[in-house]
Amino acid sequence: MSTRQLAMVMDLNKCIGCQTCTVSCKTQWTNRDGREYMYWNNVETKPGKGYPARWEEMGGGFDETGALRDGEVPSKYTDYGVPWDYNLDDIMRGEALEAQQKLKQGPNWDEDQGAGDHPNSYLFYLPRICNHCSNPGCLAACPRGAIFKRDQDGIVLVDQKRCEGLRYCIAGCPYKKVYFNPKRFKSEKCIFCFPRIEKGLPPACAQQCVGRIRFVGFLDDVDSQVHKLVHKYKVALPLHQEYGTQPNVFYVPPLPGPPKFDKNGKPIEGSERIPVSYLEELFGPETKNALKTLQAEMDKRKKTGKSELMDLLIAYKHEEMFRIETPRPKPQVAHGGDGLVQIVKRKVPA
């Protein structure tokens, strides 16, 4: 659908859940004008309901016949959470800290809960932005053809002039990464920081990532880190590829972690703390091979001191995580489907 495709790879083994990405995105784009409740970038704890709560059960995406599936539109009261404040003035007078409303839901509501019982509990962090899919569910769902993929980099955008706030895109996106701005009555979403991309800079979330987990580049650029991780080593996998939208954000799955403990507190050799079956639910059947490659390259590095993959993932220099040639921005109009959009000229009888 696009001539080129920008992609992001996130190495989940390095994500510490610090939310610096979330904050950098929020201060850049979503702290104002009806976007206060939105998190174009969020970091959720897996296993967990995520943000918006139970997004994985809300439908959208495509079924096995290639048809768009029905989906739900989340609510801020039950799924996103209503932004709240604390009684910060009162605590200066010795009162206990309290939220100014009854809290029912919020972003990262189930932070650090994970799954499993002590001492074998487990969790990992999953940062999520718009996947800028090759077959976007949002684009397919929009009855007005207001959503388009930029030809020069595959960034998926909502044409704010065509958008009428109908929110079918939110139903159609299986990742629930399109948001409704009630103040502007428009749908809005992660724009992959395209104004930064056009200046050769990575998105704010990637630039600010203290764990250096995010790689950004073009998938057809064989020298890019994203190409090597996705296509050469095949250690970076799309999230829920069964949704049928061909995401362009890829994840290096977390290694299953330290062994589990038996009743006597002894490590069980060869056991997986994070069940690989769970990782496969998220990252698909290639997960096993990816984990095998990661382990083999770690071993190789230990023995020989050499591994291109390990060097890549360590990311000695932050700027080397990004390869963004400055694409020439071309003005473009929404195309959402052959001949779907016709700007109707006013036609009145003579």
Binding site: L139, G336, L340
Partner: peptide
């Protein structure tokens, strides 16, 4: 008039380099 044609992909059809059907 045909509604948004992107609602139906041709599964198994020729994909572009980025998997678009």
């Amino acid at each position: 008039p045909n509604p948004n044609k992107n609602r139906h992909h041709q599964v198994g059809g020729p994909q572009d380099p980025y998997g678009a059907l």
